[in-house]
Protein backbone atom coordinates (compact mmCIF):
# COMPACT_ATOMS: atom_id res chain seq x y z
CA UNK A 1 0.00 0.00 0.00
CA UNK A 2 2.97 2.30 0.30
CA UNK A 3 2.84 4.60 -2.63
CA UNK A 4 6.49 5.55 -2.78
CA UNK A 5 9.65 3.54 -2.68
CA UNK A 6 11.29 5.65 -0.04
CA UNK A 7 9.71 3.91 2.93
CA UNK A 8 11.80 1.41 4.82
CA UNK A 9 11.65 -2.00 3.24
CA UNK A 10 9.89 -4.46 5.48
CA UNK A 11 11.85 -7.51 6.39
CA UNK A 12 10.10 -10.74 5.61
CA UNK A 13 10.92 -11.91 9.11
CA UNK A 14 8.57 -9.58 10.98
CA UNK A 15 6.29 -11.34 13.41
CA UNK A 16 3.35 -9.04 12.79
CA UNK A 17 2.81 -6.91 9.74
CA UNK A 18 -0.14 -4.62 9.29
CA UNK A 19 -0.38 -3.38 5.71
CA UNK A 20 -2.54 -0.55 4.44
CA UNK A 21 -5.36 -1.19 6.89
CA UNK A 22 -8.60 0.75 6.42
CA UNK A 23 -11.41 0.39 8.89
CA UNK A 24 -14.85 1.98 9.22
CA UNK A 25 -17.30 2.03 12.10
CA UNK A 26 -20.91 2.08 10.93
CA UNK A 27 -22.91 4.66 12.89
CA UNK A 28 -26.35 6.23 12.48
CA UNK A 29 -24.69 9.35 11.05
CA UNK A 30 -22.53 7.50 8.56
CA UNK A 31 -19.25 5.63 8.38
CA UNK A 32 -16.50 6.76 10.74
CA UNK A 33 -13.18 6.17 8.97
CA UNK A 34 -11.38 5.11 12.13
CA UNK A 35 -8.19 3.67 10.60
CA UNK A 36 -6.72 4.95 7.35
CA UNK A 37 -3.92 3.24 5.45
CA UNK A 38 -2.27 2.02 8.64
CA UNK A 39 0.95 0.08 8.19
CA UNK A 40 3.01 -1.19 11.06
CA UNK A 41 5.37 -4.01 11.80
CA UNK A 42 6.35 -5.74 14.98
CA UNK A 43 9.63 -7.68 14.69
CA UNK A 44 10.02 -10.78 16.84
CA UNK A 45 11.17 -10.19 20.41
CA UNK A 46 10.78 -6.40 20.23
CA UNK A 47 8.54 -4.02 22.09
CA UNK A 48 6.63 -1.74 19.77
CA UNK A 49 4.69 1.14 21.24
CA UNK A 50 1.64 2.78 19.68
CA UNK A 51 1.23 6.21 21.16
CA UNK A 52 -1.59 8.62 20.53
CA UNK A 53 -4.35 10.61 22.16
CA UNK A 54 -8.00 9.65 22.48
CA UNK A 55 -9.62 9.07 19.10
CA UNK A 56 -6.30 8.24 17.45
CA UNK A 57 -7.37 4.67 16.71
CA UNK A 58 -4.56 3.06 18.69
CA UNK A 59 -6.85 0.75 20.65
CA UNK A 60 -8.91 0.00 17.54
CA UNK A 61 -5.73 -1.16 15.83
CA UNK A 62 -4.88 -3.44 18.75
CA UNK A 63 -8.40 -4.89 18.78
CA UNK A 64 -8.25 -5.44 15.01
CA UNK A 65 -5.08 -7.47 15.34
CA UNK A 66 -6.65 -9.44 18.15
CA UNK A 67 -9.88 -9.94 16.16
CA UNK A 68 -12.05 -8.44 18.87
CA UNK A 69 -13.83 -5.70 16.93
CA UNK A 70 -17.44 -4.77 17.61
CA UNK A 71 -20.11 -5.72 15.08
CA UNK A 72 -20.33 -2.32 13.46
CA UNK A 73 -16.66 -2.34 12.42
CA UNK A 74 -15.72 -3.16 8.85
CA UNK A 75 -12.24 -3.60 7.41
CA UNK A 76 -12.34 -2.30 3.85
CA UNK A 77 -8.71 -2.64 2.78
CA UNK A 78 -5.39 -4.00 3.92
CA UNK A 79 -4.04 -7.13 5.49
CA UNK A 80 -2.57 -8.27 8.77
CA UNK A 81 0.15 -10.90 8.54
CA UNK A 82 0.97 -12.77 11.70
CA UNK A 83 3.79 -15.28 11.47
CA UNK A 84 3.49 -15.02 7.70
CA UNK A 85 -0.24 -15.78 7.48
CA UNK A 86 -2.91 -13.25 6.62
CA UNK A 87 -5.30 -13.15 9.56
CA UNK A 88 -8.17 -11.92 7.35
CA UNK A 89 -7.93 -14.96 5.02
CA UNK A 90 -8.00 -17.44 7.84
CA UNK A 91 -11.05 -19.45 8.87
CA UNK A 92 -12.38 -18.14 12.15
CA UNK A 93 -11.53 -21.40 13.91
CA UNK A 94 -7.88 -20.96 12.98
CA UNK A 95 -7.99 -17.38 14.24
CA UNK A 96 -9.43 -18.54 17.53
CA UNK A 97 -6.66 -21.10 17.73
CA UNK A 98 -4.04 -18.36 17.49
CA UNK A 99 -5.70 -16.26 20.19
CA UNK A 100 -4.65 -17.33 23.65
CA UNK A 101 -1.83 -19.42 22.19
CA UNK A 102 0.44 -17.39 19.89
CA UNK A 103 -1.29 -14.12 20.61
CA UNK A 104 -2.52 -12.87 23.97
CA UNK A 105 -3.74 -9.58 25.33
CA UNK A 106 -3.92 -7.54 28.51
CA UNK A 107 -6.40 -4.71 29.01
CA UNK A 108 -6.68 -1.38 30.76
CA UNK A 109 -9.18 -2.74 33.26
CA UNK A 110 -8.01 -6.14 34.48
CA UNK A 111 -11.54 -6.96 35.58
CA UNK A 112 -12.71 -7.15 31.96
CA UNK A 113 -10.43 -10.09 31.26
CA UNK A 114 -10.83 -11.93 34.55
CA UNK A 115 -13.98 -13.92 35.20
CA UNK A 116 -15.32 -12.60 38.52
CA UNK A 117 -17.00 -15.84 39.59
CA UNK A 118 -14.11 -18.23 38.98
CA UNK A 119 -10.95 -18.64 41.01
CA UNK A 120 -7.60 -17.51 39.62
CA UNK A 121 -6.50 -21.15 39.75
CA UNK A 122 -9.20 -22.47 37.45
CA UNK A 123 -8.78 -19.55 35.06
CA UNK A 124 -5.03 -20.02 34.90
CA UNK A 125 -5.35 -23.76 34.28
CA UNK A 126 -8.04 -23.21 31.65
CA UNK A 127 -5.95 -20.77 29.71
CA UNK A 128 -3.43 -23.55 29.08
CA UNK A 129 -6.01 -25.62 27.18
CA UNK A 130 -3.88 -25.53 24.03
CA UNK A 131 -1.28 -27.52 25.94
CA UNK A 132 -2.33 -31.17 25.78
CA UNK A 133 0.90 -32.68 27.08
CA UNK A 134 0.97 -31.38 30.61
CA UNK A 135 -1.17 -32.76 33.39
CA UNK A 136 -3.47 -30.59 35.47
CA UNK A 137 -1.00 -30.71 38.33
CA UNK A 138 1.82 -29.52 36.12
CA UNK A 139 -0.35 -26.72 34.79
CA UNK A 140 -1.16 -25.64 38.32
CA UNK A 141 2.53 -25.67 39.24
CA UNK A 142 3.31 -23.53 36.19
CA UNK A 143 0.57 -21.11 37.19
CA UNK A 144 1.97 -20.79 40.71
CA UNK A 145 5.47 -20.27 39.38
CA UNK A 146 4.21 -17.56 37.03
CA UNK A 147 2.28 -15.80 39.81
CA UNK A 148 5.43 -15.88 41.89
CA UNK A 149 7.34 -14.42 38.97
CA UNK A 150 4.95 -11.47 38.51
CA UNK A 151 5.23 -10.64 42.19
CA UNK A 152 2.08 -12.04 43.78
CA UNK A 153 3.11 -12.71 47.39
CA UNK A 154 2.37 -16.19 48.68
CA UNK A 155 0.99 -17.58 45.40
CA UNK A 156 0.61 -21.13 46.80
CA UNK A 157 -2.24 -20.11 49.02
CA UNK A 158 -3.62 -17.20 47.01
CA UNK A 159 -4.09 -19.06 43.72
CA UNK A 160 -7.47 -20.27 44.94
CA UNK A 161 -8.71 -16.69 45.51
CA UNK A 162 -11.16 -14.81 43.30
CA UNK A 163 -10.35 -11.66 41.31
CA UNK A 164 -12.16 -9.28 43.68
CA UNK A 165 -9.90 -10.40 46.52
CA UNK A 166 -6.93 -8.74 44.84
CA UNK A 167 -6.12 -5.03 44.52
CA UNK A 168 -6.05 -3.29 41.14
CA UNK A 169 -2.28 -3.56 40.77
CA UNK A 170 -2.29 -7.23 41.77
CA UNK A 171 -5.07 -7.96 39.26
CA UNK A 172 -3.03 -6.44 36.48
CA UNK A 173 -0.10 -8.62 37.55
CA UNK A 174 -2.37 -11.67 37.41
CA UNK A 175 -3.52 -10.67 33.92
CA UNK A 176 0.10 -10.40 32.83
CA UNK A 177 0.83 -13.80 34.36
CA UNK A 178 -2.12 -15.33 32.50
CA UNK A 179 -1.22 -13.69 29.21
CA UNK A 180 2.38 -14.89 29.38
CA UNK A 181 1.66 -18.35 30.74
CA UNK A 182 0.88 -19.58 27.23
CA UNK A 183 4.25 -18.23 26.04
CA UNK A 184 2.77 -16.20 23.22
CA UNK A 185 4.80 -14.92 20.30
CA UNK A 186 3.08 -11.56 20.65
CA UNK A 187 1.55 -9.87 23.68
CA UNK A 188 -0.83 -7.00 23.00
CA UNK A 189 -1.07 -4.61 25.94
CA UNK A 190 -3.85 -2.02 25.68
CA UNK A 191 -3.17 0.83 28.13
CA UNK A 192 -2.21 -1.64 30.88
CA UNK A 193 -0.97 1.05 33.25
CA UNK A 194 -3.56 3.78 32.70
CA UNK A 195 -5.77 2.80 35.61
CA UNK A 196 -2.82 2.48 37.99
CA UNK A 197 -1.07 4.97 40.23
CA UNK A 198 2.35 6.24 39.25
CA UNK A 199 4.26 4.09 41.72
CA UNK A 200 2.45 0.99 40.46
CA UNK A 201 2.85 2.04 36.86
CA UNK A 202 6.62 2.00 37.09
CA UNK A 203 6.47 -1.41 38.79
CA UNK A 204 4.33 -2.85 35.99
CA UNK A 205 6.51 -1.36 33.26
CA UNK A 206 9.60 -2.86 34.84
CA UNK A 207 7.84 -6.21 35.17
CA UNK A 208 6.74 -6.20 31.52
CA UNK A 209 10.24 -5.36 30.37
CA UNK A 210 11.87 -8.08 32.48
CA UNK A 211 9.36 -10.73 31.46
CA UNK A 212 9.62 -9.81 27.80
CA UNK A 213 13.37 -10.35 27.97
CA UNK A 214 12.96 -13.67 29.75
CA UNK A 215 10.28 -15.09 27.49
CA UNK A 216 11.50 -13.45 24.35
CA UNK A 217 8.07 -12.54 23.04
CA UNK A 218 7.21 -9.41 21.13
CA UNK A 219 4.97 -6.79 22.74
CA UNK A 220 2.59 -4.33 21.11
CA UNK A 221 2.19 -1.69 23.80
CA UNK A 222 -0.67 0.76 23.32
CA UNK A 223 -0.55 3.86 25.49
CA UNK A 224 -1.23 7.57 25.61
CA UNK A 225 1.52 7.96 28.16
CA UNK A 226 4.72 9.15 26.50
CA UNK A 227 6.86 8.44 29.56
CA UNK A 228 5.80 4.81 29.73
CA UNK A 229 6.37 4.32 26.00
CA UNK A 230 9.80 5.93 26.14
CA UNK A 231 10.83 3.75 29.00
CA UNK A 232 9.54 0.42 27.70
CA UNK A 233 9.60 0.37 23.92
CA UNK A 234 12.21 -0.37 21.24
CA UNK A 235 10.16 1.03 18.39
CA UNK A 236 7.32 3.54 18.42
CA UNK A 237 4.45 4.39 16.07
CA UNK A 238 2.69 7.71 16.64
CA UNK A 239 -0.98 7.75 15.70
CA UNK A 240 -3.21 10.75 15.13
CA UNK A 241 -6.92 10.62 14.18
CA UNK A 242 -6.68 7.14 12.68
CA UNK A 243 -3.34 7.42 10.88
CA UNK A 244 0.21 6.46 11.74
CA UNK A 245 1.89 9.81 11.24
CA UNK A 246 5.38 8.75 12.26
CA UNK A 247 7.26 5.62 13.22
CA UNK A 248 10.79 4.76 14.10
CA UNK A 249 13.03 3.56 16.89
CA UNK A 250 12.31 4.96 20.30
CA UNK A 251 15.28 7.33 20.01
CA UNK A 252 14.20 8.49 16.56
CA UNK A 253 10.83 9.45 17.92
CA UNK A 254 11.82 10.98 21.22
CA UNK A 255 15.11 12.64 20.25
CA UNK A 256 14.51 13.49 16.63
CA UNK A 257 10.78 13.71 15.98
CA UNK A 258 10.04 14.53 12.34
CA UNK A 259 6.27 15.04 12.28
CA UNK A 260 4.90 18.32 13.67
CA UNK A 261 2.32 16.37 15.67
CA UNK A 262 4.97 14.24 17.37
CA UNK A 263 6.96 17.35 18.18
CA UNK A 264 3.93 19.15 19.59
CA UNK A 265 2.92 16.12 21.62
CA UNK A 266 6.39 15.83 23.13
CA UNK A 267 6.49 19.53 23.90
CA UNK A 268 3.13 19.28 25.67
CA UNK A 269 4.22 16.56 28.06
CA UNK A 270 4.70 18.42 31.32
CA UNK A 271 7.10 15.65 32.37
CA UNK A 272 9.86 17.11 30.25
CA UNK A 273 9.35 20.70 31.32
CA UNK A 274 11.75 21.20 34.21
CA UNK A 275 11.72 24.90 34.58
CA UNK A 276 8.73 26.19 36.49
CA UNK A 277 6.43 27.95 34.10
CA UNK A 278 2.96 29.40 34.28
CA UNK A 279 2.23 28.79 30.61
CA UNK A 280 2.43 25.23 29.41
CA UNK A 281 2.54 24.43 25.70
CA UNK A 282 -0.62 23.02 24.12
CA UNK A 283 -1.88 21.90 20.72
CA UNK A 284 -4.66 24.34 19.87
CA UNK A 285 -7.79 23.02 18.16
CA UNK A 286 -9.59 19.69 18.25
CA UNK A 287 -9.16 16.28 16.66
CA UNK A 288 -11.07 16.45 13.34
CA UNK A 289 -14.26 14.44 12.84
CA UNK A 290 -13.61 11.14 11.11
CA UNK A 291 -16.95 11.21 9.30
CA UNK A 292 -16.01 11.81 5.68
CA UNK A 293 -12.27 12.48 5.85
CA UNK A 294 -11.00 14.47 2.86
CA UNK A 295 -7.76 14.18 0.98
CA UNK A 296 -5.45 16.56 2.81
CA UNK A 297 -3.10 16.02 5.74
CA UNK A 298 -5.14 15.03 8.78
CA UNK A 299 -3.15 17.27 11.14
CA UNK A 300 -3.19 20.43 9.00
CA UNK A 301 -5.88 22.33 11.00
CA UNK A 302 -3.74 22.20 14.12
CA UNK A 303 -0.32 22.27 12.49
CA UNK A 304 1.80 25.38 13.02
CA UNK A 305 3.70 24.79 9.75
CA UNK A 306 0.79 23.86 7.46
CA UNK A 307 0.93 25.26 3.91
CA UNK A 308 -1.11 24.96 0.71
CA UNK A 309 0.00 21.49 -0.25
CA UNK A 310 -1.19 20.10 3.10
CA UNK A 311 -4.77 20.92 2.18
CA UNK A 312 -4.61 19.49 -1.33
CA UNK A 313 -2.68 16.30 -0.98
CA UNK A 314 -2.33 13.56 1.59
CA UNK A 315 1.33 13.19 2.53
CA UNK A 316 2.96 9.84 1.73
CA UNK A 317 5.38 8.13 4.05
CA UNK A 318 8.84 9.73 3.77
CA UNK A 319 11.90 7.92 4.92
CA UNK A 320 14.13 9.83 7.29
CA UNK A 321 16.44 7.22 8.75
CA UNK A 322 17.03 3.49 8.35
CA UNK A 323 13.94 2.72 10.38
CA UNK A 324 12.42 6.16 10.71
CA UNK A 325 9.57 7.47 8.55
CA UNK A 326 6.89 10.14 8.78
CA UNK A 327 3.95 11.47 6.78
CA UNK A 328 4.58 15.18 6.34
CA UNK A 329 5.02 17.31 3.22
CA UNK A 330 7.73 19.34 4.92
CA UNK A 331 9.95 16.28 4.66
CA UNK A 332 9.63 16.19 0.90
CA UNK A 333 10.46 19.89 0.68
CA UNK A 334 13.47 19.28 2.83
CA UNK A 335 14.55 16.32 0.74
CA UNK A 336 14.28 18.45 -2.37
CA UNK A 337 16.51 21.05 -0.78
CA UNK A 338 19.06 18.53 0.36
CA UNK A 339 18.95 16.41 -2.79
Amino acid sequence: MRRDGTAPQMSSLSLLEVRGLDLYFGTPSGGVHALRNVSLEVPAAQIVGIVGESGSGKSTLAYTVMGLLPENAEVTAGAIFFEGRNLFNMPSSARRGIRGDRLSMIFQDPMTSLNPVRSIESQMIDIQHHDRLRSRREKRARAIAMLQRVGIPDPDSRIGDYPHQFSGGMRQRICIAMALLVEPALLIADEPTTALDATLEVQIIRLLKDLQEEIGCAVLFVSHHLGAVAELCDRVAVMYAGEVVEQGTVRDIFHNPAHPYTRALLECDPGRIRKRTRTLPTIPGDVPSLLGVDGGCIFRQRCPSAFDRCRQEKPVEYRIGPEHSARCHLLSEEQKVSA
Binding site: T199, V202, E231, L266, R272
Partner: peptide, 14 residues
Protein backbone atom coordinates in the same frame (compact mmCIF):
# COMPACT_ATOMS: atom_id res chain seq x y z
CA UNK B 1 11.07 10.92 47.09
CA UNK B 2 9.65 7.71 45.70
CA UNK B 3 6.61 9.48 44.30
CA UNK B 4 8.80 12.07 42.59
CA UNK B 5 10.99 9.42 41.05
CA UNK B 6 8.02 7.36 39.87
CA UNK B 7 7.45 10.08 37.31
CA UNK B 8 8.20 8.37 33.98
CA UNK B 9 10.18 10.48 31.55
CA UNK B 10 9.43 10.95 27.90
CA UNK B 11 13.06 10.20 27.12
CA UNK B 12 14.41 6.70 26.49
CA UNK B 13 17.89 7.71 27.67
CA UNK B 14 16.84 9.30 30.92
Amino acid sequence: QALLSANTEPDPDA
